[in-house]
């Protein structure tokens, strides 16, 4: 599977409170959550983000709360992929479980700039910065997680009897 989009880039330790503030956790509706995504960090995110865009972050992306509302809000904003140097573990699980594509690749994050056009092949882990021509290799997911992803997330995996 390939994802191509323009990059919106942030720094380290992007926490779940800035991804979706707790004052909006009185709903689980993806569209409502997306309307407030990143608003405490970057007031321009909502107007800038386009369908298919790629979010790039530094170390420990998604740290903090277990709120699945965070990856739900990012996905519903139109983001097709998150590339980070590392992900906080609950955010990592939640993203895989709900089918938000994520890749860990510190080298790519250092080289990619805000606004660059980036292409990522999720099967091979190859990330290409189309704007600069740079190419990076991320480690592929372990087999079990690939199965979860190709099943379409944890709900589908449970339905298919993968969790027995």
């Amino acid at each position: 599977m390939k994802k191509t989009g323009n990059v919106i880039k942030y720094g380290d330790n992007i926490d779940t409170d800035v991804i979706i503030p707790a004052r909006y956790l009185t709903t689980g509706d993806p569209v409502e959550l997306a309307a407030h995504c990143m608003e405490d960090l970057d007031g321009t995110f909502r107007s800038r983000v386009k369908e298919g865009d790629i979010l790039v972050g530094g170390w420990n992306f998604g740290c903090g709360s277990s709120r699945e509302h965070a990856p739900i809000a990012i996905k519903a904003s139109g983001i097709s992929l998150v590339i980070a140097k590392s992900f906080a573990r609950i955010f990592y699980r939640n993203s895989i479980n709900i089918g938000l594509a994520i890749i860990e690749c510190p080298e790519a994050v250092d080289a990619i700039s805000d606004g660059d056009r980036v292409e990522a092949d999720l099967d091979t882990g190859v990330i290409t910065d189309v704007t600069t021509g740079g190419s990076f290799n991320a480690a592929p997911f372990p087999e079990f997680i690939q199965k979860l992803i190709s099943a379409g997330g944890l709900v589908e995996a449970v339905k298919a009897g993968l969790i027995e």
């Binding site: 609950i90 699980r93 709900i98």
Partner: peptide
């Protein structure tokens, strides 16, 4: 964990 994990 997250909500989908809780559901599982």
């Amino acid at each position: 964990v997250g909500s989908t994990d809780m559901a599982c």
